[in-house]
């Protein structure tokens, strides 16, 4: 989605106050905080997420295994909690990587204009027109399947949104008075960009970025389904859902737990994104 957002020029404090009054965003932040706490401290209290106990496989939730065990008798709670670091890390790093790559390309296109603009934007179009899961599959297959390569593959399919977004921002802001003024005062192109354009584009980037954390986790899960995802025994949530889907009738808890973890994460980031959009969009009130 490349809707251009008008840029907020209010002070950060006002924005923060608005954000605090936004119940959706607050719910999102609380959820995220809980997930982060689980990711940080969960593994301290729990054992090895790879420890197998074939005698206790596919057992339902009990006092010993609060969320039951999976097909190899591994404790589902332990795996979901240790997966929090991996999956949240995956989502955030993919988002950051595609945000930075996309922004740089969009910035270059917007600032350099002419043939550079044309070339870079057509490249963006090519990536957008390419079916993303097939592209990610191909990249992951070419690089060899592991967690890092999954992240690279997902980042490579998600940067174009940012490139379009930033370029649109640059084009819109170039016409604004304060940039004109800065330029008239003798600032170079690059400095104008850094001093004015990027800070002003921060809001839409934040909004888009928060939505993308969730979709990165979901895309990685899709790759896992085809076998190009994180490799066993990595307790990445998407891989866990995909590995346990074969046992959905015998042990629904084993696939539901990581699926619900993904759901909560996507929910948290989307609510935060909605909240940020509400706050930073001066017209939407």
């Amino acid at each position: 989605m490349t809707t251009t957002l008008p840029v907020s020029r209010r002070s950060d404090n006002a924005a923060l106050r608005k954000l605090r009054r936004n119940s959706g965003a607050m719910l999102g932040f609380v959820l995220l905080l809980l997930l982060l706490l689980a990711a940080l401290f969960g593994p301290l209290f729990l054992g090895n997420p790879g420890a197998q106990d074939l005698a206790a496989r596919l057992s339902p939730p009990s006092a010993a295994h609060w969320l039951g065990t999976d097909q190899l008798g591994r404790d589902v709670l332990t795996r979901v909690l240790s997966g929090a670091r991996i999956s949240l890390g995956l989502g955030v790093s993919v988002m950051l990587a595609s945000l930075i790559t996309g922004s740089l390309i969009g910035l270059l296109a917007g600032l350099l204009s002419g043939w550079w603009d044309e070339g870079l934007m057509r490249l963006t179009d090519i990536f957008l027109a390419f079916p993303s899961l097939i592209l990610a599959m191909a990249i992951s297959a070419a690089l060899g399947p592991n967690l890092t390569n999954v992240m690279i593959a997902v980042a490579l399919v998600s940067w174009p949104t940012y490139a379009r977004l930033i370029r649109a921002q640059v084009l819109a802001l170039r016409e604004r008075e304060f940039v004109e003024a800065a330029r008239a005062l003798g600032s170079s192109q690059g400095r104008v960009a850094l001093r004015h354009l990027l800070p002003n584009s921060l809001a839409p980037l934040l909004v888009q970025g928060s939505f993308d954390v969730g979709s990165a986790i979901l895309t990685a899960a899709g790759l896992g389904f085809i076998g190009f995802g994180a490799q066993p025994p990595t307790p990445e949530w998407g891989a866990m859902v995909s590995e346990t889907r074969n046992y959905i009738a015998q042990a629904p808890w084993a696939s539901s737990a990581p699926a619900v973890a993904i759901l909560l994460t996507v929910l948290a980031f989307n609510l935060i994104g909605d909240g940020l959009r509400d706050v930073f969009d001066p017209r939407g009130r």
Binding site: G50, Q71, G227
Partner: peptide
């Protein structure tokens, strides 16, 4: 499922000091 069988073998091998890094591949690869 191959990945479950592989995870079991991986843990068996780990017990004797062999670290097996699982790489799932489509059969063509």
């Amino acid at each position: 499922p191959c990945q479950d069988l592989a995870a079991k073998i991986q843990s068996d091998l780990a017990k004797v000091g062999i670290k097996a890094n699982i790489k799932q591949m489509v059969s063509a690869d």
